[in-house]
Amino acid sequence: MVLFALAKYGLSEVLDLARGSGSAVWVNHGLLDIVKLGELRAEGLDLTNFVHWVDPAAAAAVRAAVEAIREHHPNQVLYVERT
């Protein structure tokens, strides 16, 4: 499973789920600073940070981000947190 956190609101739940499941995590740009990204990776999380902001309210932007994630994780269930 792949988890994509678009908003800060559900980020902690996404990270907790990833810790328990070994899921890959993608996070929207700006949700985590470089120090926190490093800490989470050192913890063993498979974590990717988008290099640009994906507006959760812009359907086309979210679709494009999902397509990019699917290129890297084909045939996997993708959960998108966008609250």
Score class of each variant (00 low, 15 high):
residue 1 M to L: 09
residue 1 M to S: 15
residue 1 M to Q: 11
residue 3 L to G: 10
residue 4 F to M: 12
residue 5 A to E: 03
residue 6 L to V: 12
residue 6 L to G: 06
residue 6 L to H: 12
residue 7 A to V: 12
residue 7 A to M: 06
residue 9 Y to D: 14
residue 10 G to L: 03
residue 10 G to K: 05
residue 10 G to Y: 01
residue 12 S to T: 09
residue 12 S to E: 14
residue 12 S to W: 02
residue 12 S to I: 02
residue 13 E to H: 05
residue 14 V to R: 01
residue 14 V to Q: 02
residue 15 L to F: 06
residue 16 D to R: 09
residue 17 L to T: 11
residue 17 L to G: 01
residue 17 L to D: 00
residue 18 A to G: 08
residue 18 A to H: 00
residue 20 G to H: 03
residue 20 G to Q: 08
residue 20 G to M: 06
residue 21 S to D: 01
residue 22 G to W: 00
residue 23 S to P: 07
residue 23 S to D: 14
residue 24 A to E: 05
residue 24 A to D: 04
residue 25 V to N: 05
residue 25 V to M: 02
residue 25 V to H: 10
residue 26 W to Q: 07
residue 26 W to I: 07
residue 26 W to M: 07
residue 27 V to R: 01
residue 27 V to W: 00
residue 28 N to I: 13
residue 28 N to M: 13
residue 30 G to D: 12
residue 30 G to S: 11
residue 30 G to N: 13
residue 32 L to P: 13
residue 32 L to Y: 01
residue 33 D to F: 10
residue 34 I to C: 05
residue 34 I to E: 15
residue 35 V to H: 14
residue 35 V to Y: 12
residue 36 K to S: 14
residue 37 L to Q: 15
residue 37 L to A: 08
residue 37 L to C: 14
residue 38 G to K: 13
residue 38 G to D: 12
residue 38 G to N: 12
residue 39 E to P: 03
residue 39 E to L: 14
residue 39 E to Y: 08
residue 39 E to H: 10
residue 39 E to T: 11
residue 39 E to F: 07
residue 40 L to S: 09
residue 40 L to F: 10
residue 40 L to T: 09
residue 40 L to D: 10
residue 40 L to Y: 12
residue 41 R to C: 02
residue 41 R to S: 08
residue 41 R to A: 02
residue 42 A to K: 11
residue 42 A to L: 09
residue 42 A to F: 03
residue 43 E to P: 05
residue 43 E to R: 04
residue 45 L to P: 10
residue 46 D to C: 04
residue 46 D to Y: 02
residue 46 D to W: 02
residue 47 L to S: 08
residue 47 L to C: 04
residue 47 L to N: 08
residue 47 L to W: 07
residue 48 T to A: 09
residue 48 T to S: 13
residue 48 T to V: 06
residue 49 N to C: 13
residue 50 F to L: 14
residue 50 F to P: 09
residue 52 H to Y: 11
residue 53 W to Y: 15
residue 53 W to N: 09
residue 53 W to P: 02
residue 55 D to A: 12
residue 56 P to R: 08
residue 56 P to Q: 08
residue 56 P to S: 08
residue 57 A to P: 00
residue 57 A to L: 13
residue 57 A to I: 04
residue 58 A to Q: 10
residue 59 A to C: 01
residue 59 A to K: 05
residue 60 A to R: 06
residue 61 A to E: 15
residue 62 V to I: 11
residue 63 R to F: 03
residue 64 A to G: 06
residue 64 A to N: 08
residue 64 A to M: 05
residue 65 A to R: 03
residue 65 A to N: 03
residue 66 V to W: 01
residue 67 E to C: 02
residue 67 E to Q: 11
residue 68 A to G: 04
residue 68 A to W: 01
residue 69 I to P: 06
residue 69 I to V: 15
residue 70 R to E: 12
residue 72 H to A: 07
residue 73 H to R: 00
residue 73 H to P: 03
residue 74 P to D: 07
residue 75 N to L: 03
residue 75 N to I: 00
residue 75 N to P: 01
residue 76 Q to L: 07
residue 77 V to R: 13
residue 78 L to N: 07
residue 78 L to W: 01
residue 78 L to S: 01
residue 79 Y to S: 12
residue 79 Y to H: 13
residue 80 V to I: 15
residue 80 V to T: 11
residue 81 E to S: 13
residue 81 E to H: 11
residue 81 E to A: 14
residue 82 R to G: 09
residue 82 R to F: 10
residue 82 R to E: 10
residue 83 T to F: 06
residue 83 T to K: 05
